[in-house]
Amino acid sequence: MIATAKSISYGMAKAEYDENKVINGVKVASETARQNVYGDNCREIVEEMTDVQRIRSPVRNPFLDIVVTLSEEDCEKITAPNQSEWLVKLFMHDLMTEQMGLSEDDYAGMQWIAYQHEHTDNSDSLRHWHILVNRTLLDGKLVSDSWIGKKAAATANKISREYGLTDAAVRSRENREDVFQAACFVLGNMRLYDFNRYLEGLNALGYRTRLALNSKGEVQGYYITAQSGREYKASAVDRRLTIGRLAVLHAGLHKGMKAAAARSPGRAFSMPAPNVPTVNVENMLRVFNADAVISYSTPPPPNDRRRRGKRWEDMSDDEKRLATSGMSM
């Protein structure tokens, strides 16, 4: 289980997204749990929260946006609606009382609502919850948003350890290793480096990519989605995957394969493929117009073992006849 959190200003827009999420024409959202809100729809609920916020002076980001995501393995353990409700309530209680420092009474005066999404745009098996929280408590106190992202992640890690769910730190490391191996596999099968072809190869291999643009529309970086469905900024996976360093990594990978082949004559060396279906590798090779993955090898050394026995000119006629029949002298 992993969790992210941040403070936001756009509570209404976020609530409408959470309540009405549609993927491929099918609504995937449903309410999981709520506390201290009573409206029949997201608009009424946000209006309730906004009324409470008027108790105190306005703040820049009056809402918390929290997302809790299960791994594919965890989804098999949390199946019933009451299990989802229990997990969300446990997460919210532990986050607010243990990480944020609220008392039990303060937490009892907090407003929040959670919606379950059955899957994501990138994966049809990752169940997750969007939780919209009012930072203003019913008595007018304001909940701090300091380090809220790290505190949400810490809460997810704690619950994962206690209840046998996938540890977020372990899964994140596995995801980054998976993405880096896929990127190296694509680069290792490019004769000449080209960033656009590299992105095409990743997409064909099954790893979705997305460019990061600045306000002027200029490319500042890119994102890669792991097989688990979690999206990572390339620089967060490995600094060598930044746009400015990819060409160097490409050259280094090919140099490494050539060096390995030189050290072990007679063996072929290529980049190891990530754990993806064979058809994905075939799709990537089609993008590169290749029949097989690139491999490097050097011929085995010649057999320089000297024959033991007499030289031809030192043999008698009988010995020569035996030698030509296959016997050694």
Rank of each mutant, 00 (worst) to 15 (best):
A3I: 01
K6I: 07
A15C: 11
A15Y: 03
N20R: 11
V26I: 14
S30M: 08
T32K: 03
A33G: 03
V37G: 01
D40T: 09
C42T: 12
R43G: 07
V46L: 13
T50L: 07
L64Q: 07
I66N: 02
T69F: 04
T69W: 03
T79N: 13
P81F: 12
P81E: 15
V88E: 01
F91L: 08
M92G: 04
L95P: 00
M96L: 14
T97H: 04
E98S: 14
D106W: 02
Q111A: 06
H117F: 08
H119F: 15
T120G: 06
D121H: 05
S125E: 13
R127P: 00
L132I: 15
T136F: 07
L142V: 11
I148M: 06
I148S: 03
I148A: 02
G149P: 06
A152I: 03
T155P: 01
A168W: 02
R173A: 11
F180M: 12
A182I: 06
D194A: 12
F195A: 07
N196M: 08
R197M: 11
A204G: 05
G206Y: 09
R208I: 04
A212E: 10
A212N: 13
N214K: 04
G217I: 11
Y223M: 10
Y223F: 15
A226H: 01
G229I: 05
G229K: 03
E231K: 13
S235E: 12
A247P: 01
L249I: 08
H254L: 11
K255L: 07
K255F: 05
M257S: 12
A262H: 10
R263Q: 13
G266N: 10
A268G: 07
P272Q: 11
N275W: 04
T278I: 12
T278W: 09
F288E: 01
F288L: 09
D291F: 08
D291R: 09
V293M: 12
I294C: 07
S295P: 05
N303A: 10
D304C: 08
R305H: 07
G309N: 11
G309D: 12
E313K: 13
E319G: 00
R321S: 13
L322H: 04
S325E: 15
G326E: 09
